[in-house]
Simulated scan of single mutants.
Amino acid sequence: MRRASHHELRRSFRALLESRACYHTASVFDPMSARIAADLGFEVGILGGSVASLQVLAAPDFALITLSEFVEQATRIGRVAQLPVLADADHGYGNALNVMRTVTELERAGISALTIEDTLLPAQFGRKSTDLISVDEGVGKIRAGIEARVDADLAIIARTNAGVLSTEETIIRTKAYQAAGADGICMVGVRDFEHLEQIAEHLSVPLMLVTYGNPNLQDDARLADLGVRIAVDGHGAYFAAIKATYDCLREQRNITSKSSELSATELTHTYTQPESYVEWAREYMNVKE
């Protein structure tokens, strides 16, 4: 059977953006999951930054994964994927020049689209992980990413956090990113349809929402009417894989104690050892003048 080229998959993703429907992503984290998602009829997959950190490093989502490590995993997926794959490229691994490198490498890896967010990463010690860079710096990153791409069908989507901004501030940021040439706007933290409506009325580009299954946003027809083309419910498939591995290995070792049973969330916390990273941050990042 003939395989679709990377360019054809990008055109398929563009068709999703240009449609009148809302599509839900499959969490793809390795070549096998990408093949499964395509075979099951998913229209688009997503390689999450947090998932890549877990899969490649067994590390928490503290912006520890490097661009080269992320691109290596994206390349493995892109080698076999027969559905468009959207990459969560975090902050582009640095400043606007780093964003250019990120776009170049992910385009070569076969990614169909990528999000660049305006979060201040890595987070500074003692600061929230939701701190944002300035609007002007965010605009510069989007413009730099557009300049760096070779295939014009590679979609570059600007992401911001509507959950930590006022509605007015969210509108200012998203309109600025739209004016900078972003192919779409991705938002996390949208509370409900009223919140979404207030923002969407100011935008004309396609929208992408990271909802994590928010029950106040579970109406695909209404999402589509408001311009949402891509919805990310989370990465349940990946966490199910972690849980299945744990349960299988427990059974193999004949461990039947109820006290040792762990949920996927508990497993992730246990085996990424976040306390060590917090302690290292306190020791080495808490620099006093």
Rank of each mutant, 00 (worst) to 15 (best):
M1P: 10
R2K: 09
E8A: 04
S12H: 07
A15S: 09
A15K: 08
L16D: 04
H24V: 12
A38Y: 02
D39Y: 10
E43A: 11
E43K: 10
G49D: 03
S53Q: 04
L54K: 00
A59P: 00
Q73M: 10
Q73I: 08
A74E: 09
L83M: 02
D88V: 10
H91A: 07
L97N: 09
N98M: 10
V99E: 04
V103Q: 03
V103Y: 12
L121H: 04
G126L: 11
D131S: 05
I133A: 01
G140P: 00
K141P: 01
I142A: 03
V150G: 09
A152Y: 03
I157Q: 03
T160H: 07
S166C: 12
E169L: 14
E169G: 07
A182M: 12
G184N: 11
V190K: 02
D192A: 09
F193Q: 14
H195R: 15
A200D: 08
M208A: 06
N214R: 05
R222L: 11
V228T: 14
D233G: 05
H235F: 04
Q252R: 15
I255G: 11
L262I: 14
L262G: 09
E266P: 14
T268R: 13
Q273D: 09
E275M: 10
S276P: 05
N286G: 08
K288W: 13
E289M: 11
